[in-house]
Every structure is written in structure tokens, then in C-alpha cells.
Amino acid sequence: MRIRSAVAVVSLATAVSASIVPAAAGAADGAAAGPTTFTHVVVNGGKDIVLGPTTRRTVTLTWTATDPEGVAKTWAHLWHGPNTDDADGHLPHYPPAGTCTVSPADPATSTCTLSFEVDAARDLHRNSLAGTWNVLTEAQDTTDDWTDVDVAATAKIKRNAKVTVNASPEPVRKGRTISVTGKLTRADWETGAYAGYRGQSVKLQFRKKGSSTYTTVKTITSGSGGTLRTTVKATKDGYFRYVFAGTGTTGPSTAAGDFVDVR
């Protein structure tokens, strides 16, 4: 956390200006004023932001700013990289205005909301941008002191994944071998397409006809180009599917079940 006077403020070109009605000074006479504190900082409702090669999605960022002197203005944005000086990504790129509401019960507290669009093709031009992003928050109080926190919260931005399945032959006699094939791919933000994802654990699951529950049969590893291939014995009518749990940089995916008629 850093506190600075208004005359020392650097450019806020990557910050988000929020329109806000200044709160009344909250510090009692003679009391020492403290820095602005930021709480309830949440990105996308706490859910991962999972994007395909050309996905456009509106993301909401919310936070609460509290200052004993009252909050005059507050900003927030997402950044990616080792530190703010060497950040290789900022969201949003073209900051829209957010909105803040002063708490009727506590004039020193303001609750803020910012919605902005993330365009994978425009904003995420390198696959290395997948993973953990940080939320920088900043505020100006009514006495022109500034507080900023480089990492007030974190959020995950991930590459979308797809998995397919095909069980054959169909129909098949009981006791015969069923070949279950498929493919695991994920978004390549650099090429604007999907590419095979090899070396990943994928579960083969089965749901018998008339049931609503899938059970895991085995776990396999995706091969070259993301190929999936294994065999099982035919025992009863039902559905086979592949399930990919996801990683720290790639979202999960579940294939639609493929029905096999066992005779």
C-alpha cells in the first residue's frame, strides 16, 4: 500500500475513473486520518474468466473504498505481470467510467461497480497472458491524499478448452471391445483458433441408460495434437464422455455423452 499527496500523482492512463459524490469527512477532530482501505474486491462475481480465441465478454469489477476523511474519487483496473512497472497487460485498455454509491449508514464508505468488455482478439494477444491477474485499486480522499494498493485481489483469465468423444462400434455385442476416441483442444489467442492440447489428464466417464449419474471408468493422457483414445468392454447400454478438469491457465470442458447400444 502506498499513500501520496495529489501533487505527486503519476499518470492514471491505465486506471479507471469512477464518478462519485464526495463523502463527508469521517475523522473526528484531533484524530489521525488513515489511508483508504479497499475491501470486497471481486472480479466477475468470483468466477474465472474463460475466453475462446475471439470471445467478447462483459466483466464486472466491484470494490468498497473506505477513508476516515471521506472518499472523493476511486479507481480500479486489472493488470498482469511480475509487477506494476513491468506489467504486460492491462484491463480495460480504454477505461469507461464506473459508478460509486456512498453508504447512507457510513459516509466514509463508497461501494463501486465497473463493467467493461474483454475482447480476446484485441486484449489477449499472447497465450502467456493466461493465468492470474491482479486488481490495482486507488483512491483520492477529500483532503487530496492518495492511496493505492497494487494487489487488492486477484482473478483468473483462462483459455477456453473443448473436448469431443466418439464411442464405436455402435451397436456392439456385449463383451466386445468399444473404442472411445476424441480430442482435447484449447484456444490459441495468438492464432485466433483452437489447437491440440497434449499431455493432459482426461477422465473417461460412463452413464448407463436410465441413470442420471456418470462414473469415472479410467483416466488417460491426451496425445499428440490432443488426441484421446482408449478401449473398454461393452457391458450395458449407456453414454460415454470425456471430462477435462482444466488447469491454472485453461478452463474445464465436458463432452456431450455418446450413446452405445449394447446387444
Rank of each mutant, 00 (worst) to 15 (best):
A24F: 07
G192F: 02
K209S: 15
G34T: 15
R126G: 01
S19V: 14
V42W: 06
P35G: 12
T235R: 15
W63A: 04
K156T: 07
Q200H: 00
K162H: 14
V202N: 06
A187P: 09
R122M: 04
V232D: 11
P252N: 08
V50P: 03
D144C: 05
K208T: 13
Y214K: 03
T66K: 11
V180D: 03
T58G: 07
A255K: 02
V21L: 14
P22V: 14
V202S: 14
G238Q: 08
V165T: 14
T37V: 15
A87F: 00
A25Y: 06
A76F: 09
L204K: 09
P96V: 02
G238Y: 08
A28G: 13
S201I: 00
H90P: 00
Q205P: 02
F206A: 04
K174W: 06
A8V: 00
G131M: 02
P169V: 04
S212H: 14
D145Y: 12
S5C: 03
D85K: 04
H90E: 07
S115Q: 07
G34R: 08
G199E: 09
S201R: 13
D148N: 12
G46A: 09
T164E: 03
G192H: 04
G246A: 08
I220Q: 10
V202C: 12
L91K: 00
Y239A: 06
L184Y: 02
V243K: 11
K162C: 04
V71H: 07
P95Y: 00
G45S: 09
C112I: 08
S128P: 01
A256D: 07
T74R: 03
V149A: 12
A15D: 15
V262P: 08
R122W: 01
P169S: 10
G131N: 11
G81F: 01
